[in-house]
Amino acid sequence: MNELKEKTYKRSHEPVFWGLFGAGGMLCAFITPVMILITGLLIPLGYINRSHFDYNNLHAFASTWYGALIILVLIALPLWHTFHRIFHGLHDLGIKRGRDWQRVLCYGFAFTVSVFIATLLFAMF
């Protein structure tokens, strides 16, 4: 009778980072061209009134909980996407030794900036 050996699986945090990477990539793919169109073409050409994007209106939007959440998502997810790509790009460049410091550096920076932006945004209430 064969005894079944218990398999031990090492838990990984990688699915979380891949999820943030995918969400940030989707946001970059869909939102960035729209933002470039609005701020780079439509406003300078006069198709959209500049007064809609003045400081007071944008500050009023960012001072609401949903505005702060939207701005946080628009900043944090592309940031996580970028640093996840950098982390795996280092491996592609042949920098393989000591992956822990690379992980801490990339994901730690993305986490720190995300928390900093969240603190700034939610302090405006």
Rank of each mutant, 00 (worst) to 15 (best):
V34D: 08
L58C: 07
G40K: 04
L72F: 09
F21R: 08
A62M: 13
C106V: 01
Q102Y: 06
P44R: 06
L41R: 13
H13S: 13
G89I: 00
N57I: 11
T8P: 00
G25H: 05
L79S: 06
G40I: 05
T82G: 15
V34K: 10
G94Y: 09
R50F: 10
H91L: 06
T8G: 03
T39M: 13
K5W: 04
G22I: 06
A118C: 06
W101V: 12
L93E: 05
F53Y: 14
L90T: 00
F116K: 04
N56C: 13
I31H: 11
T119R: 10
W101E: 07
K96F: 07
Y66W: 14
I71T: 05
G108F: 01
L72S: 03
T39Y: 15
P15T: 12
V16N: 14
M26A: 15
Y107G: 00
S12H: 08
I71S: 02
T112E: 01
F87N: 08
A29K: 09
H81E: 10
D54I: 11
K10A: 14
F21C: 07
V16K: 14
H91G: 09
V34Y: 13
T8D: 02
G40W: 03
I71E: 02
V104K: 13
L77E: 03
N2H: 09
W65F: 10
S51T: 08
L90S: 01
F111C: 02
T32W: 15
I38F: 06
V73L: 14
I70R: 04
L77Q: 03
L27A: 03
I95D: 06
I70L: 15
N57M: 14
I43G: 01
V115C: 09
G19C: 15
R99P: 00
I117L: 06
A118W: 03
A29C: 11
A110R: 01
G46D: 01
F116W: 04
R97Q: 09
Y55N: 12
R97S: 10
L4H: 08
F111H: 04
A110Y: 01
L37D: 13
H52Q: 09
R103I: 00
L77P: 03
C28Q: 08
G108Y: 02
W101S: 08
V16W: 15
F87P: 00
V113I: 14
